[in-house]
Nucleic acid binder design. Structure first.
Lengths: 123, 123
DNA sequence: TTGACATCCGTGCGGTTACACGGTCATTAT
DNA sequence: ATAATGACCGTGTAACCGCACGGATGTCAA
């Protein structure tokens, strides 16, 4: 099942090859988007974008999810450096990390959400 | 394992609840982002954004992937309505669909890619 | 018509991922 | 000190997903 050896449009193929996404860049992009591509994580990030700071229990309360669920989600987000923690007593507060990608916040979270709300164009 | 009944910051919880993402909106957002969160699909969409139109074989050639792989990827993208097809003889050309979300194209594809390239801030 | 080709489709398998459970640490109150 | 609480961690399991394989469809060439 080798790719055929007769490019139909060699010029476009060359352009796609040179200006396209490398496998490495795609990998980084995907590992980032994968973190957003989960209901709990997306809602957590969106909530933190709205109210700045929340602790685990309150987050679970606000989302109507189990603490286990948000705990697991926060584990991944924290590992990826997308959120930071502030510990006060036995309560741990979360907020969006300083290294949180601005375009991701501005466009992917806000704009995409707005769009998704407007267009009921889904399965 | 019920959420505790003592919100630490009741005001923020209320705000996160009212202005936050509903489960349904999150579901739609996630089903969209999930389509981007794959190396092959992301590279296909990016390539189509660059060169307008490509057939399956040329796409596989440009990405250095098997035709099976891009065939499967296109199957999902087509089902979701993100790409459209134009058939010429036995060759099928793909391009970004008319319903392709503009913010997704502008920001998620282009800006995020640029950012991901610049910042080696990943696992 | 016969054969070769580009693509699509259904299916099974392997790897990944989300989630629930039990145990542990640190902190606060009695 | 003991008990209770908020959160973390490691592990097992079940579901999901990408992908390869085989076969089917439609098209061009001889």
């Amino acid at each position: 099942m080798e790719p055929h050896e007769h490019p139909v449009d060699a010029e476009r193929v060359a352009r796609a090859r040179s200006r396209g996404l490398s496998a490495e860049d795609a990998g980084r992009l995907v590992s980032l988007l994968s973190l957003l591509a989960d209901p709990v994580r997306a809602r957590i990030l969106y909530a933190l974008d709205e109210v700045e700071e929340l602790c685990v229990g309150d987050l679970a309360l606000a989302l109507g999810a189990t603490e286990d669920s948000v705990g697991y989600a926060l584990r991944l987000l924290r590992t990826a450096g997308l959120v930071t923690t502030r510990k006060s007593g036995r309560v741990v507060f979360y907020r969006l990390g300083p290294g949180f990608p601005a375009p991701l916040r501005e466009h992917c979270l806000r704009q995409l959400v707005a769009m998704t709300r407007a267009e009921p164009d889904d399965d």
